[in-house]
Design a protein around this nucleic acid. Structure first.
Lengths: 113, 113
DNA sequence: ATTATATATTCAAATATTATTATATTTTTA
DNA sequence: TAAAAATATAATAATATTTGAATATATAAT
């Protein structure tokens, strides 16, 4: 199982708009760097940096095709994670109802803003 | 549905060891600030800062119980997300096999390190 | 009313992340 | 073999996040 540290690390890796877009694109198939240049509005070196970061963390890998690097997903959690992030939950979790629930308290009391 | 920006924001909020531990604890039930002091080895103000951040992002909320603040989960994605992060995937995703897959390339070529 | 308890807020310092710019590497093509 | 194409690396600058220290607020108990 992923350790706590590994879970945090993964979250940190995902927590960037460019990297999420790269990963969402890769769930649809292999892409080379210049494919990303077409729809990410950032510089080529910056794209490479993000791809390198994802690769260093074992999230993606690549094949060579001539001078193209064809990146693809490796970590199997990614599609599931991306899907769950897009899921629509329309109700909040139910407010806790039974007491006492904290160590010292006699909850519930009044809700405050 | 959560926008891309909201998804990134959520990931950023979760990508911290203290906050993940707080949330994992809250999936088991309500906790007040001093409960967290028992197992997080950081200062009380720092705990409050993390709780405040989680609350500002709509992930948790609290009830008052006298002078205790009893925090609880609000965002329903949290338990699912925490669970998926802990899931054991033992196989990598299958390497892509069909070509051509990139815009310009004639993939697959040889895999490189 | 005063004091103690539980928790929050503020600001600055420390640290980490990200983007930018310039340059390097690798492979292909001429 | 020289030039072009695709991509990476390195160094720095810009920005954001995190922590620490001091102080503030609110409620409860005396």
């Amino acid at each position: 199982m992923r350790s706590l540290g590994q879970r945090i690390e993964l979250l940190g890796v995902l927590a960037h708009p460019v990297r999420i877009r790269i990963l969402e694109e890769l769930t649809r198939g292999v892409k080379c760097v210049s494919d990303f240049e077409d729809f990410l509005e950032i510089s080529q070196p910056n794209i490479s940096q993000h791809l390198g970061l994802l690769r260093n963390h074992g999230v993606i890998d690549f094949y060579m095709d001539g001078r193209l690097r064809c990146y693809f997903l490796v970590d199997p959690i990614i599609p599931d994670l991306l899907e769950i992030l897009k899921t629509d939950y329309h109700k909040s979790l139910p407010a806790p109802s039974c007491c006492p629930v904290t160590k010292k308290g006699s909850y519930p009391g009044k809700r405050r803003r």
